[in-house]
């Protein structure tokens, strides 16, 4: 008898909680549907803005194939005459602390890193290492320096991004 009552309670609590979860999930899905397009177009605009920062003459860009770890996309950036300007690497790395750090890295046709811009992050203190345009300052001297002393874990994500780009061996276009 007691077991039967207990079972009834468990079933009642379970289905009611499930119903609450379903209602909340439906509301969240509705808000997601409304915000999906603005979020995606914002991301696209920020990526293009970052690319333009490294290559002001940018006119078009084409996505190239890559299997490098952490790289979401590799773009070959071209000017208005179709001439190659360089590469842009869309990279996401874990900071081990505040979640994912999404970055755009500019690479010249000579294979040199020309700049890195943080597109999005969940860190609380990384902004103090960014200049007004959002560029990670002093990246060329970052390795082994104390530049990121207050954000060592975020710095790991940035360093891993640079390592990944170096391993890709990007260079001139044949």
């Amino acid at each position: 008898m007691r077991d039967g009552t207990m079972m009834k309670t468990v079933v009642r609590v379970t289905w009611r909680l499930l119903a609450v979860c379903l209602v909340v999930a439906a509301l969240t899905a509705a808000v997601f549907a409304v915000t999906k397009e603005p979020i995606e177009s914002g991301e696209r605009a920020r990526k293009e803005e970052a690319m333009r920062l490294f290559f002001p003459e940018l006119s078009t860009y084409a996505e190239e194939k890559t299997t490098a770890s952490g790289v979401n996309a590799l773009y070959l950036v071209k000017d208005k005459d179709g001439g190659a300007l360089g590469w842009c690497v869309d990279f996401s790395g874990n900071s081990d602390y505040g979640g994912e750090v999404a970055m755009m890295i500019g690479v010249s046709l000579e294979g040199k890193v020309t700049g890195l811009q943080v597109i999005s992050h969940s860190e609380t203190f990384i902004d103090r290492y960014l200049d007004k345009s959002g560029c990670y300052t002093g990246i060329s001297a970052a390795r082994g320096s104390d530049l990121s002393a207050g954000a060592t874990l975020s710095y790991n994500a940035v360093r891993n991004a640079i390592d990944a780009v170096e391993q890709m061996g990007l260079g001139g276009v044949k």
Binding site: A25, L27, T28, V31, F32, V34, T35, P38, I39, G42
Partner: peptide, 12 residues
């Protein structure tokens, strides 16, 4: 659920 909704709206 409501925090997720607010987060999505702010991000958008």
């Amino acid at each position: 659920g409501f925090v997720t909704m607010v987060e999505l709206l702010m991000k958008a």
